[in-house]
């Protein structure tokens, strides 16, 4: 009996300590005097060049890179903020709430544009659009939709073709998906009409942009809504199966952000890393070999603003209402 209890205890603790990472990688040059642990929602392949360039400059640092979804990242970090030094996520709202709740360290010696930082603690380092991504074959002889309205029209006119061939984020599981959806809903009623149409045609729900793009390339789905433009762009370079559309009616742009944990014991190294990250991601320094887009606002381009209002849809009641409405539209 006692052994059984101990076994359960071991099982629980091991399941707690060994999170189910999407990916986990250690970067090192062999001689490590310092180490950093980064908790990130960014796929390793996209972030590795930045880490490697950092290690070129500071070869005696070992970096542990943990990848997980935006929603679970928030959960994991809140549970044990002392385990991770740097938090990187595309879910701006969750990141901002972490800062608001006092989880981030102020880094005073960083000079960064005002619109790309919050409380001198949260630093944006990319600007990435939410895109509609299409499988080219599915739109062979048809005009490619430029706006959400066009897409609604197209889906309606060829409803049999598109049935079960549409994908989007499951906003209940993905923090970024939730951010995109709430920002869309805030901007225009078109979003709800689109969701209703997509729901009527049986939409597949995904946790991550990567999976969505995989299915698009393979032809499993023909349209994916609110895919991370940067990921799609990277895939397009490899296979020309897909078409990326930045909706002309209202584009949604997100900023990937980084913060240093307030409970981090390696503040100096963390700050050095943040400085390096922001420096490589300026428009001037961001060369084409890097897969992540730079922090650069084209004239007229807008992005989701880093402000306390981002916490609005994280409110328990608001979230409940939003998810209820979203489920009503998309899961029919």
């Amino acid at each position: 009996m006692r052994n059984f209890i101990i076994l359960i205890f071991i099982l629980i603790t091991s399941s707690l300590s060994a999170n189910e990472w999407e990916d986990k990688k250690v970067f090192s040059n062999g001689k490590n005097t310092n180490s950093l642990s980064i908790l990130s929602s960014t796929d390793t392949s996209f972030f590795a060049p930045i880490i490697k360039s950092f290690l070129d400059k500071y070869p005696d640092i070992k970096i542990e890179y943990f990848v997980t979804g935006t929603a679970s990242l928030d959960e994991i970090f809140r549970k044990s903020p002392e385990k991770y030094d740097i938090i990187i996520s595309s879910a701006m709202d969750l990141q901002l709430k972490l800062v608001n709740d006092g989880y981030a360290k102020k880094i005073n010696q960083i000079d960064h544009p005002n619109w790309a930082k919050w409380r001198q603690s949260l630093f944006a380092f990319t600007i990435e659009p939410a895109a509609i991504v299409l499988n080219k074959k599915a739109f062979k002889n048809i005009a490619i939709p430029k706006t959400r309205q066009d897409l609604i029209k197209e889906l309606r006119s060829r409803s049999t073709f598109f049935r079960n061939k549409i994908g989007t984020y499951d906003v209940r599981k993905s923090g970024l998906g939730y951010l995109f959806a709430t920002q869309d809903a805030r901007t225009s009623e078109t979003f709800w009409r689109l969701m209703e149409v997509m729901g009527g045609l049986g939409t597949k729900l995904y946790c991550c942009s990567g999976d969505m793009i995989d299915d698009l390339v393979s032809g499993k789905i023909a349209v994916a809504y609110n895919v991370l433009g940067s990921y799609a762009e990277a895939r397009k370079k490899k296979s020309d199966e897909i078409e990326i559309i930045l909706p002309a009616d209202f584009p949604t742009n997100m900023m990937r952000t980084a913060l240093v944990s307030n409970s981090s014991s390696r503040v100096k190294t963390s700050e050095t890393f943040i400085r390096h990250l922001l420096n490589t991601q300026t428009e001037k320094n961001n060369d084409k070999t890097h897969s992540l887009p730079p922090l650069f606002l084209k004239p007229g381009q807008q992005t989701i603003i880093l402000e306390p209002a981002l916490m609005t849809y994280l409110d328990k009641l608001k979230r409940k209402t939003f998810i209820k409405e979203w489920e009503r539209a998309i899961i029919q």
Partner: peptide, 16 residues
């Protein structure tokens, strides 16, 4: 309590 985005947006300050 479906409070508007502006409820918190109006509390944005220069020093965040």
């Amino acid at each position: 309590v479906d409070f508007p985005y502006a409820s918190l947006s109006m509390l944005d300050t220069e020093l965040d």
